[in-house]
Amino acid sequence: MIDLFVIKVGGNVIDNPALLDTFLQQFSKIQGKKILIHGGGKIATRIGDKLGIESKYVDGRRITDADTIDVVTMVYGGLVNKQLVAKLQANGCNAIGMTGADANIIPAVKRPVKEIDYGFVGDIDNDQVQSAPLKALLEANLTPVFASLTHDGKGQILNTNADTIASALAIAMSKVYNVRLIYCFEKKGVLHDAQDDNAVINLIDRQIYNELLADGVLTDGILPKLNNAFAAIESGVSEVLIGHADDVLSNTSETVAGTLIR
């Protein structure tokens, strides 16, 4: 039996008011303990543009310079986080907004400069994530809502990938609870055919994964998610699910609409 759902909502959902409202309504109906993780990159880009701060990317990854870390801190930890918390309260979910700096839950280190200087980007050591403060909040019937920000322990906020934060939190909390990590995005799950949104593969284990890989079914876009999923499972997470944001409630049950990975 799953005791805790760690749920990451994708940026395309955050950026679409109708999709977001549906997701939050469904999320609020989930029974039991749950944690939500979000980013907000497109909103940060729009606000940065208004402030005259240009967004820079390398291979799709944001370069977080001194001006940009101020913008993402304001947007992720302030605007987006507090709007989500307020909307969850309106749906009867007693949420509390957080970053990795709060209660020292997710310390990180600034990514070393190699070929590319990503700036104020944080890398997480999963062994350093603090489960005790989160357990106290969950046992008090609060729902933590994490912006994708960590800290270096020296006063510096760091921009950190939301998928990575979700995985790190799920791994840490798996020492306390049976955890299902759920990645919610705009697809219904892992697909047999990338052009057919209804061709969902409902269950994948290592053997099935290797068969799909050999048959060339899996596209480049889904491979990182699956690799992260198996890494989380190998680190103690009971199950990982990849599915559509609209199906988040059904995907906390035994009969899933998305792809369950074990």
Results as ranks from 00 to 15, higher is better:
V109T: 11
I63G: 02
D197V: 08
H151Y: 12
N178R: 15
E54V: 09
R180T: 09
A231F: 10
K34V: 12
K29T: 06
V217I: 15
S174N: 08
M1F: 07
F27Y: 15
L149K: 04
F185H: 05
N228Y: 06
F146M: 03
L241E: 12
T99H: 05
L134F: 04
V190Q: 04
L142G: 02
I242H: 02
L181G: 04
V6M: 11
N126W: 13
D247F: 03
L142I: 12
D70Q: 13
G10V: 11
V75S: 02
V190R: 01
G189P: 05
N198K: 14
Q130R: 13
L249Y: 14
I261A: 08
V217S: 03
Q195C: 03
G77M: 00
T252K: 00
K82V: 06
K175L: 01
L19S: 12
Q26Y: 05
L84V: 07
Q31G: 13
E234A: 15
A199L: 04
Q83C: 11
D117I: 10
F230Q: 11
K87T: 09
M1W: 08
G97S: 08
A66K: 12
A232I: 08
I222M: 11
L24E: 02
C93G: 03
Q26V: 09
A18E: 15
G60T: 09
D163S: 10
